[in-house]
Every structure is written in C-alpha cells, then in structure tokens.
Simulated assay, not measured.
Amino acid sequence: MTRRSTNQRGEPDIAAGERALRVFDLAIYRRLDGLLLAEHAGRRPGLGGELADVRIYSPGQDDARRIDWHVTARSAEAHVRTSVAEPELETWVLVDGSASMDFGTAGMEKRDLAVAVVSAVHALTDRPGNRLGAHLLGGVEPRTFPPHPGRRAARVLLRALLAAPRTPPGHGGLDLAAGLERLLREHRRTGLRVVVSDFLPRTPDENLSWVPPLRRLAVRHEVIAVQVTDPREAALPDVGLLRLVDPESGRTAEVATSDRRLQERYARAVADHRAVTAMALRAAGADHVVLRTDGDWVGDIARFLAARRRTARRRVQAFR
C-alpha cells in the first residue's frame, strides 16, 4: 500500500482509498481468516450471558467462581450456575484520529495502518450475526459508526475512515482517556474491544491518563491494544538544522539534529515512553501488539494471535 493520496484541495483521494481496501482484502482474508475465532465464541471464555439453570458442583471440572452461594446455602450442597451462551459477538474499535496519526515515512501513514487494523478486526470476527462498530477520535468532532454485520457494512465503515478529514494541529476534542470512558459508558454488552492508537499524549498532562478507563474496560470486555508506530519516531536523523512542528499543539521549534547528545536523549526518551506504555497496557489487563508502518503488519497480527491462543491454552490446562 502507498501513502495516503490527496487531491489538489488536500482531501483524501477516494479512488486511492478503494485501491487500499482491495489490498487490505487480499492481505488479510488469506492470512488471518479464522485465527481469532477458530472456536466460535461470542463472549469472554468461561462466562455465559443469561442464567439458565443450576446444578451440583463437580470438583476439578467446574469453575469455583460460578458457585451460586444462595442455592448452596439452602441445599447444603455446592451448586454452580450454568448460562446460555451468547452466539453473537459485538466488537467495537476505538480509532485514534489525532494529529499525530497523520504521520508516516514508510509505506503508509499511521492513520492508514489504523484503518488496516479495523479491516483485520472485521476479517477475524466476520461470522454470522457478529457486528462491528467503531468510534473515531479526532477531526472536527468524534464520530460513531454503529455496529452492523456483514462484509458490505464493513467496507462502508472502512471507506468512511479512509475519507475522514485530518485533525488540525492544536485542535482539542476528546482525548484517548475520554474516548475510552465513552466506549465503556455507551456499550456495556460484553464483547471484544480494540483500541488502535500511537499512545502519544497531546500534552504532558494526558500522559497515561488513559490507564484507569482502560483498566475498567478490560474488567468487562476482551481488550486488545494496537500500538501503531513509524520508524522515524524512534531516532532523530542527522539532517542539519530542522524546523519541527508538533502535530498535536501546532508549536514549532528549530532543532540541530546533528547534535549527537540530542540524538541520544531523543532515542532514550522514545524507548522509555514505549516501555512505560507497554507496562501500563499489560497492567491494565489489555493484550498488546505493536505494528509498524514499514513492517509486515498482517504477519505481526497473525503471530500475535497465535501467541495469544497458546497462552490461553496454557491457562486452561493450568486451571484444570
């Protein structure tokens, strides 16, 4: 895929977006189909939807957390709750569309990679009855795309995300923390939640402010945090005196990029921020995968999901 194309007025090139969608289809459906939902599930493993019945507890077979203590007290024998499985999965993707996502020095911009992730999520959850919705942060105001089933609805969603206007530098609006709060408040049905962002704060006060709402989100839902990065963000190139613009605040500064100590401080700061972000995501209970604009993002997602399934199997075996 090539970097996002725009017309003479700076608007997204819809024809280029359509070509990008075809690339997404070819890359994703051939390599990712079935990896997430090989065993169809519409909820968290081990939890059902509505109460169906109770039965006598079987040690070693039943989860002790499912014991119904009211029935147990009345009968003087341990009973567990059984639930009706929810066959449908409702997935919501929170897409960070802040100004820092309009950056890319490799095959695509970070915003394009975020749209590719939404396409991958649809391919992974595309089963009868399953629905996919999205919240887009940034732009003039946040946008909500209600969940719909089917591939045609997913393509409408992807076109809308590709055509979304860029966020002006210094624009306010909802930050990632507020977006997570909204996601938790408005969509309470248990399902899959995917957060796609570069996790770069717009201001120092916003750094890691998203951790508490993400932790609350992970208590109720399966949460996958997708961190999108670009190779030029990790190191400051030696290109002499450079005028830089902060995409979030719009502030400018002239930087002597040939300064070796400045390059080292910059690299350390980026590495420290990424390490802290990774630790915070794990502590919040979210699965974490890092994708690069110059990498094989489809392969990275496939490897992440394969590792995730192996970990889930080990947990089940250890519990038994």
Rank of each mutant, 00 (worst) to 15 (best):
G48E: 02
D63K: 09
A73P: 04
G46E: 10
G104I: 11
T82H: 07
D96Y: 01
L94R: 01
T91S: 14
V80I: 15
V84N: 09
E50F: 08
R74I: 05
D53C: 01
V95A: 00
S75N: 09
S100I: 07
S98A: 14
T105S: 15
D53A: 14
A106Y: 06
G48S: 09
G46P: 03
W69Y: 07
G107I: 00
F103I: 11
V80G: 06
L94Y: 02
W92R: 14
D96N: 01
I56Q: 12
S83K: 00
V95Y: 01
G104T: 09
L47P: 00
W92Y: 13
T82V: 14
R55S: 08
R74S: 03
G97W: 01
A76Y: 06
T82G: 03
G48H: 03
V54M: 02
G60E: 07
R66G: 00
G48K: 07
A85S: 06
A78Y: 09
D102I: 00
T91D: 07
Q61L: 14
E50D: 15
A73K: 04
W69R: 08
L47K: 08
V71H: 03
D68L: 03
D68S: 07
R81M: 11
K110G: 04
T82D: 11
R111S: 14
Q61I: 12
E109Q: 12
M101D: 01
S83R: 10
E109Y: 08
V71E: 06
E50W: 06
V54F: 02
W92L: 15
R55Y: 04
V95W: 01
D63R: 12
T82M: 10
M108S: 11
E77Q: 15
E50I: 12
Y57F: 15
D68E: 07
A73E: 09
G104F: 08
A73F: 10
L94E: 07
W92T: 02
G60K: 09
S83I: 00
D62R: 04
V54L: 00
E86W: 01
D53N: 14
P87R: 03
E88S: 10
D96L: 01
D112R: 02
R66Y: 01
T105K: 10
T82Y: 04
A52M: 11
H79V: 07
G49N: 11
I56V: 14
F103N: 08
L94D: 11
D53Y: 02
T72P: 02
F103L: 13
T72H: 10
R44I: 12
D68F: 08
D63H: 06
G60A: 05
D96Q: 03
P87A: 04
I67P: 08
R65P: 01
H79K: 05
W92H: 09
D53L: 03
T82Q: 13
D102C: 00
V80S: 10
S98P: 00
Q61G: 01
W69N: 02
P87G: 07
R66H: 15
D112I: 03
D63M: 11
L113T: 03
T105A: 13
Y57V: 06
G97N: 07
S75T: 15
E77W: 00
L47D: 00
V93L: 06
M108I: 02
L51Q: 05
S100H: 04
E77R: 15
H70P: 00
A106G: 06
P45S: 14
R74K: 12
R44W: 03
G60L: 10
S58T: 14
S75A: 13
E109K: 07
F103Y: 15
K110Q: 11
D63Q: 10
D62S: 06
S75I: 10
A99M: 07
E88K: 10
G48N: 10
